[in-house]
Computed example of a mutant assay.
Amino acid sequence: MKGIFVACFLVSNALFGQKIIWNENVKLNWSNFKSKVNHRSGGNVVAYTNCGWAYSYVKSSNPKAPIEIEIQTVFNEDKSWKDTKRINDYVLLHEQKHFDVAEVFSRKLRKEVSEKIKTGADFDKYFQAIYNRILREYQNFQKAYDGETRNGIVEEKQSEYNRIIAEELENYKSYKAS
């Protein structure tokens, strides 16, 4: 007997909002930021991007049977906010990079999952630890990104992060969603 199980991670765990699945050919625009509520307090916050990943899996009751796992990078429009009086293209690029970072860590998760999880038993034994570790790395990277760029204000640091993020996307390109 096969069962389908779905679990999601989003920065604020919104399951039924409007979502955009990450695609290298589709970039965010200001109309994607639909929340009326500023989810991050602070005077220097011009916009807030709610993104992360969602995963689903199909697992047999036979623990030795292969498992299918799908991981997608998502942007939650209903939880993403903008200050319409202060937005511009530069700020939008900074917010796009948050979404791109989520894709980098989705790819890292896909890589580890593909290397270490082949069966339902592997999933039960390893998935949560892998997921939690990569989630912490993701959160730490996002925090460092905003901290070092001061939410995109420090242009030199923003340029450095733009390069790092592009390199990481390239380094893990074989793990993009199919």
Rank of each mutant, 00 (worst) to 15 (best):
F75W: 08
Y175D: 08
E160P: 03
F16A: 12
K79Y: 14
A102K: 01
I67D: 02
N62L: 09
K143G: 07
F99L: 03
N140K: 12
W22K: 01
F9A: 09
Q18K: 15
E156W: 09
K125F: 07
K116Q: 14
K111H: 06
A102Q: 02
I164K: 03
E103P: 00
K116W: 06
A177E: 14
V113W: 00
A47M: 03
S41Y: 06
L28A: 05
I4R: 11
S12M: 10
S31P: 04
N171Y: 05
L93I: 11
S80A: 04
A65I: 06
E155N: 14
N32A: 08
L15M: 11
V58W: 04
Y126L: 11
I4N: 11
K36E: 15
S178Y: 10
E155A: 15
E148T: 00
K2F: 11
S56F: 10
S56R: 15
F123H: 02
F105E: 01
D89R: 12
I134V: 11
D122K: 02
W22F: 14
D78N: 15
Y55T: 06
A54G: 10
V74A: 03
Q96S: 08
L92A: 01
I4C: 07
N25K: 15
S12L: 10
R150W: 09
I130L: 11
G152W: 01
G152E: 01
Q72F: 11
D83S: 09
K118M: 08
A177N: 12
G42C: 02
L10K: 07
K2N: 13
W53Q: 02
V113N: 01
E168F: 08
F105Q: 00
N162R: 09
S61T: 14
A47G: 06
Y161A: 00
Y131C: 07
N171I: 08
A54N: 13
A102F: 00
D124T: 06
R40E: 15
